[in-house]
Amino acid sequence: MRVTFTVNGRPQEADDVWEGESLLYVLRERMGLPGSKNACEQGECGSCTVRLDGVPVCSCLVAAGQCQDREIVTVEGLAEHAKARTCGTGACGSAKGTGLDEAQQWQARPTDESVELSPIQQAFIDAGAVQCGFCTPGLLVAADELLERNAEPTDADIREALSGNLCRCTGYEKILDAVRLAAVRQEA
């Protein structure tokens, strides 16, 4: 079947979608947007969290067909989304997946290059909240949404909002630091 929807502000169309495919699969394998992660595919880890019409959901539990005519924001569009929130523009960057060539040429780059990041993305880097990074995209989408509706979350609020996102590397302390940091910077 064909599914037409908006991803990170850009109209997208997927053809020959198997009816049982999840939104996660379509994003990762058909849209070239592998940022949303496939850690459990049973709604128990949050690594595939995306915004569906603004609401954080597990994209592994959304059937692709349910996204017809709906709006998705993934981690790839998070910087633009945050920017639009602050500056009121609706523009969205071009999302791209990882081709093999790019993967082969992967190089560690310094963090201060001119990539525009959302406050929460920058805070995750600065606070040391990223280790293996597999949980990071889902946490970023969830944390960004928390800060959107609650500019001054308490620690308990942060913990509750992120309680659907598993991290196996960090012990969560640096993730809490990152959200606190982003909240403070947001206020400043």
Binding site: G46, V57, G164
Partner: peptide, 9 residues
């Protein structure tokens, strides 16, 4: 119920 993401849907 489950997680915030699941409670949202």
């Amino acid at each position: 119920v489950a997680s915030p993401q699941i409670r949202n849907r």
